[in-house]
Simulated scan of single mutants.
Amino acid sequence: MPKIAADGQHLTVLNLFTTDTAEKQEKLLAAMREIVDAAAYEGWISSTVHAGQDKYGTANFIQWRSTEDLETRYAGEEFKHRTLPLFGEITTSIRLLQNEIAFTQQKPALDGVTEISPTRDDYTAIELFGVAEADQEELVDALGASQRYLLDVPGYRTHTVLRGLRARGVEGKFVVVYSQWDNKEAYDAHRAVPQSERVPDRQKVDSRVRSLQTWQDENTYRVVHTRATGE
C-alpha cells in the first residue's frame, strides 16, 4: 500500500486526465490499469489509479525514484507513440505534474501515516492551484501548515500539499492539495459552510489563498487500483 510522506525520498507525479463521458472514463481506467499492471520501468516505485466522481476524469498518483528515471520513461518509444496518442483520443485535457511533497497532515488516529489504496474507503479531493513563482512558497504554507483547523472538521482524514516542480499541460508554477475524507457528504458539507460562518482561522486562510492563487481547478475521486514495484 503506497504511503505519502514529506521525506524528500521520491519524485511524486500526478497525472490528471479529464474526459466528457462515463464510457470514456471507463476506457481511461482500463488503459491505466493495463499500463500499471505491466509497469517495469527503471526507477518506478508505485502507481495508484483514481476514478473521477464529481467530474469525468482520472488521476494517477505515481512515485518515482528520480526525475531522470521519469524523463527516460517519457523519452521512450512506447510513451511517445502508444501511450500519449491513446490518451489523446479519449481525453479532453492531459496534465502531467511533477511534484515534491511539501506537507502532510493526518487525524491523530492515523498515527502520522497517509496511505492510498483501493482497500480503503477514502473520498479523495485533488485541487490544483496556479500561482506566481514568487508566491509559490507562501501558497504552500497557506494550504499546508496554516490549515491545522481541519483537524477539528467532521469527516476530515488527511491532506497533503505538493509543490509543483514542472509539468506538461500546465503553464507556470502550481501547488496541489490531495485530501482524504470519510465520504462525499462530509467533504461537501465542509465546502458548503457559508463564508460568514467559517471559523476565524479558516476565514484567514481562505482570504490568503484567494490573494495568492491565479487560477484553480478540482475534482473528487475514488481509488480503484494500485500496484508497486515487486508486486
Rank of each mutant, 00 (worst) to 15 (best):
A31M: 12
Y41N: 15
A51I: 06
A38P: 09
A59S: 11
R33K: 13
T48V: 13
S47D: 08
A31L: 13
D37C: 10
A59G: 07
A38I: 01
M32P: 05
A40R: 08
Q53R: 15
G52A: 07
S46H: 15
I35P: 00
I35A: 13
W44N: 03
G57E: 01
G43S: 08
A30R: 07
D54M: 14
A40L: 09
A39P: 10
L29Y: 09
G52E: 02
F61L: 04
F61P: 09
G52K: 00
A39N: 12
S46W: 12
H50W: 02
M32D: 11
G52W: 03
N60H: 04
A59H: 09
E34R: 03
Y41K: 13
A51N: 02
M32G: 07
A40H: 08
G43Q: 10
A31T: 06
A30I: 06
K55Q: 11
R33W: 00
A31G: 08
A30D: 11
S47P: 07
R33S: 01
E34P: 00
A51Q: 09
T58M: 12
V36H: 08
L29V: 05
A40Q: 11
V49T: 09
M32R: 10
Y56W: 13
A40E: 15
T48N: 09
V49I: 15
R33Y: 00
M32S: 11
G43L: 03
S47R: 11
A40V: 00
A40P: 10
H50M: 15
A38N: 01
S47V: 11
A51W: 00
F61T: 07
A39W: 02
E34S: 14
A40D: 14
A59C: 10
F61E: 05
A30P: 05
Q53P: 02
R33T: 04
A59K: 01
I45R: 01
A30K: 15
E34L: 12
D54K: 12
D37F: 04
E42F: 07
E42N: 15
S46A: 14
T48I: 10
A59E: 00
M32T: 06
V49D: 05
E42D: 14
A31F: 15
L29C: 01
G43H: 06
Y56I: 10
Q53K: 15
S47H: 02
F61Y: 06
A30H: 11
Q53I: 15
A31E: 13
E34A: 12
I35G: 03
H50L: 12
A39I: 10
S46G: 15
I45K: 06
V49S: 01
E34C: 07
A51H: 07
N60D: 14
Q53L: 14
A51K: 14
Q53S: 12
E34F: 00
E42M: 12
I35N: 09
E42C: 01
A38M: 02
I35R: 10
G52P: 03
V49N: 06
E42G: 06
